[in-house]
Design a protein around this nucleic acid. Structure first.
Length: 460
RNA sequence: GGCUAGGUGGCAGAGUGGUUAUGCAGCGGCCUGCAAAGCCGUGUACCUCGGUUCGACUCCGGGCCUAGCCUCCA
């Protein structure tokens, strides 16, 4: 079996064949660090982290680049508002991004390039585009000329002429064509800027990804990924710049786009004020529950976020961790392969819902397996969880993070259980139930089993 | 207006031209003094109207509805 990927370019699921199997290249558009990430920003991070894991099983050398945009007008605005320099802002939110993503089980990419470290490469690329007649200077700006790039609109399936007709934005007077976009723009003295052949200025948004992608991965890459809203104009523009600058007929061979996280069916966005900040959610919920929920829908579908769904994800994880707690893994768990049904689902265009279904099937198998087979099944469940980025905690740690505060000492608890035990033996069940209720009120759950009574701290 | 996705059981959410998704909730059972947990079992679900077909939820066409992009946006 091979890996299948839905390619936005062809609008079809294709078999993934890398240009060079010894060096597979993946680029995902990363965050602009001017505030905390919301759960919609987390979705591509989780999805493409998973893609990287899936690719890495098949190919020994996968280079995954996920950039950090650290020069942007929104960053400038945030810095101005607080009266600090932009690097105070970008450092703060880049750190927060890393912490939040780590809590969601997202690993670090192979390289994490920053726009401000690539100004030279960006300037060189723009110079080249001007030389080749694909860009022009106007009033301190440098603009890309979409007119003489005939494939413009191929990815988003847009027609240039129709775009002019339907344009709802005022067109800057210095543009030759309404679709032309900025490669470089002038900076006033109070804004961050770099010297360039066109005066002090800063890069436009699209050019940084083209420059960083070429610097770290090469002129033609295997997979380029990002959110659906980047198809146009961001990715369309990246294709135009990169192909024109490098004289290639392909920029990225496969394009992958994730759907949005919605709230009450509406896209999560700042303008609607319906964003859910990961940093805040993590105060109330385990990161792993957020990850489970993000994986519960297929990445190209919209995912409607709700507290109810989050609770369900958490309940499901409770059950899975309960099984892992009750059944010790085989000692050689590291050598166990993930469930083939799960890898097959993931290799089929990252079908995470089917993968999670298979994971649950495996758990069910474990639940009623012959005792002799359980350690091996538990190990397999762990190994499968590792691939999807779930079930890697100590089960005790999973449960304890969710426990309520308990005032009683362990001696008190054992004492009460003993009293209840005596009441039960005396068949004074009303007294036994009273003690059980009393313990429950204080956050202790009693479980009577064949080997006596055990207890645990209740979950929140 | 142009372009893109989608409409599946109480909810979430995969998938398939004729056969069990899965999770959560519900119901019945096992276990228990009763519970809890766990396990077992359990649902004539595929927007609408036509067409293709021996047979369509699955393919094709029309309609209705929803969301998204066309402007910063994951």
């Amino acid at each position: 079996m091979s890996i299948r990927i839905y390619n936005t370019l062809s609008r079809e699921k294709e078999t993934f064949v890398p240009l060079d199997p010894k060096r597979v290249t993946l680029y995902a558009c990363g965050p602009t660090v001017y505030n905390f990430a919301h759960i919609g920003n987390a979705r591509p991070a989780v999805i493409f982290d998973l893609l990287y894991r899936v690719l890495s099983r098949r190919f020994s050398n996968v280079i995954y680049a996920r950039n950090i945009t650290d020069v942007d007008d929104k960053i400038n605005a945030a810095a101005a508002e607080e009266g600090v320099s932009i690097d105070v802002i970008t450092r703060r939110y880049a750190d927060a991004y890393h912490a939040d993503m780590a809590a969601l089980g997202v690993g670090r990419p192979t390289v994490e390039p920053r726009a401000t470290d690539h100004i030279d490469a960006i300037v060189k690329m723009i110079e080249r585009l001007i030389e080749l007649g694909h860009a022009y200077e106007a009033e301190g700006h440098v603009l890309f000329n979409v007119e003489n790039f005939s494939d413009y609109g191929q990815l988003s399936r847009r027609d240039r002429r129709e775009m002019i007709a339907g344009a709802r934005v005022e067109v800057a007077p210095y543009k030759k064509h309404p679709g032309d976009f900025v490669l470089w723009k002038p900076s006033s003295d109070d804004l961050p800027g770099w010297d360039s052949p066109w005066g002090r200025g800063r890069p436009g948004w699209h050019i940084e990804c083209s420059a960083m992608s070429a610097s770290h991965l090469g002129e033609v890459i295997d997979i380029h990924a990002g959110g659906q809203d980047l198809v146009f104009p961001h990715h369309e523009n990246e294709i135009a710049q990169s192909r024109c600058a490098h004289g290639t007929d392909t920029f990225a061979r496969y394009w992958m786009h994730n759907g949005f996280v919605t709230v009450e069916k509406r896209k999560m966005s700042k303008s609607l004020g319906n964003t859910l900040i990961v940093h805040e959610l993590l105060k109330q919920w385990p990161g792993e529950a957020l990850r489970y929920l993000l994986l519960s829908a297929h990445y190209r579908q919209p995912l409607d976020w709700s507290e109810k769904a989050l609770e369900q994800a958490q309940t499901t994880l409770d059950r899975l961790y309960g099984l892992l707690r009750d059944h010790a893994s085989d000692a050689f768990a590291e050598q166990v392969e993930p469930d083939p049904a799960v890898t097959a689902a993931l290799e089929d265009d990252l079908n995470t819902p089917t993968a999670l279904a298979a994971l649950n099937g495996l758990a069910r198998q474990l639940g009623h397996a012959d005792p002799a087979e359980r350690p091996a099944l538990a190990a397999r469940l762990r190994a499968t969880g590792e691939l999807v980025g779930l079930l890697q905690q100590d089960p005790e740690a999973w449960f304890s993070q969710r426990q309520v505060k308990v005032e009683l000492s362990e001696a008190d608890i054992l004492n009460l259980i003993e009293q209840r035990q005596q009441a039960r033996q005396a068949r004074d069940f009303s007294e036994a139930d009273r003690i059980r209720d009393q313990l429950a009120d204080q956050g202790i759950v009693i479980k009577d089993g064949p080997d006596g009574t055990s207890w645990e701290v209740a979950a929140r």
